[in-house]
């Protein structure tokens, strides 16, 4: 399975390009799933379908889906809060359970929920599709989501170290005293018995897998931009962020190029891709808005994608 993340500034044509790529790939007899992670979904509008959290069949080989981020975060929070409340039921008299309820407003939860949804999707659909095309939210949010695995892994590393020294101390106390328990709770002193350490390792594994996949050969980041100053500036920032995160930026699409401004478009392409010789560039001409079916692509994207 190969994945393509279509990223870029809002309004540059990410969704259009992602849809065109998905459609063209499906025409070459490949099984394709197009997923939108953009909270302001457009995928359904483009294909003229009402889409939801569940994948929907559009064509023999093409499936479409719009991830409901709010639903994904609520589901994630609910699962964890239910677990918390069942364990900490004694806290109810002190209203501590309310404290857990406010977790859903804590910063970063939505990004994490989208990442969890993405990881789940990639894991489940790995066998069912040859290509997964992902339409992402505008730049800022996308970079934050894609940066999460790296940030989280460094935090997990620190937490694991602290936990390790706690367990070491407990082990010493156990060896001298013959037992270690407080207020009736038997404390774990071995790494293999400690649930916290186990959970930390489990989360670490999950993120490692995701990071390896995102940085790997089967994943490509496509940056869609327009030949104008603002789009150039934002795309430059995006490309730098991708480089910092070691994410594979492989394809650049210069969209909405007008014939009379070809020179300007070339200048912007050169500036944007000056240190990225390995990146494939596609230039797409602006369509006549008068055309009713404006989403029929003239240029063939599959040559580059396949």
């Amino acid at each position: 399975m190969k994945t393509f993340f279509f990223t870029g500034k809002g309004g540059t044509g990410k969704s259009t390009m992602a849809s065109a790529a998905a459609w063209q790939l499906a025409l070459t007899d490949k099984r394709v799933l197009a997923v939108s992670f953009d909270p302001a979904h457009n995928l359904g509008d483009i294909f003229g379908l009402k889409l939801s959290h569940k994948k929907k069949r559009y064509d023999k080989k093409l499936y479409l889906m719009e991830v409901n981020l709010e639903k994904a975060s609520v589901k994630y929070i609910k699962e964890n809060i239910n677990l918390l409340e069942s364990i900490y039921s004694y806290l109810k008299p002190f209203n501590m359970d309310r404290y857990f309820q406010i977790l859903k407003y804590s910063p970063g939860i939505e990004e994490y929920a989208s990442l969890t949804a993405m990881e789940e999707l990639l894991r489940i659909e790995k066998e069912n599709f040859d290509y997964i095309i992902i339409d992402t939210p505008p730049t800022g949010l996308t970079v934050r989501i894609l940066a999460l695995p790296v940030v989280t892994l460094s935090w997990i590393d620190r937490l694991k170290k602290i936990r390790g020294s706690i367990l070491e101390k407990r082990y010493t106390i156990h060896n001298i005293n013959g037992r270690i328990s407080k207020e009736g709770i038997k404390l774990a002193y071995k790494e293999s018995d400690d649930m916290v350490m186990k959970k930390l390792k489990e989360i670490e594994m999950r993120f490692m897998r995701l990071r390896t996949f995102l940085e790997g050969n089967d994943n490509s980041i496509v940056v869609v931009f327009n030949p104008d100053f603002l789009s150039l500036k934002e795309s430059e920032r995006l490309i730098n962020a991708l480089k910092e995160l070691k994410l594979p930026f492989r394809i650049a699409i210069n969209n909405k190029v007008e014939d009379k401004y070809t020179e300007e478009a070339e200048r912007i392409e050169k500036k944007l891709l000056r240190n990225n010789d390995y990146v494939k560039l596609i230039r797409i001409k602006r369509m006549e808005p008068a055309l009713k079916k404006a989403y029929t692509m003239v240029d063939n994207l599959t040559e580059v994608l396949l």
């Binding site: 964890n80 677990l83 977790l103 407080k182 959970k199 989360i203």
Partner: peptide, 16 residues
């Protein structure tokens, strides 16, 4: 602090 979700996932085991 680490992302809040890390705390959310670990809390169930942190009674002590």
């Amino acid at each position: 602090s680490p992302p809040a979700f890390l705390a959310v996932e670990l809390f169930p085991y942190l009674e002590h």
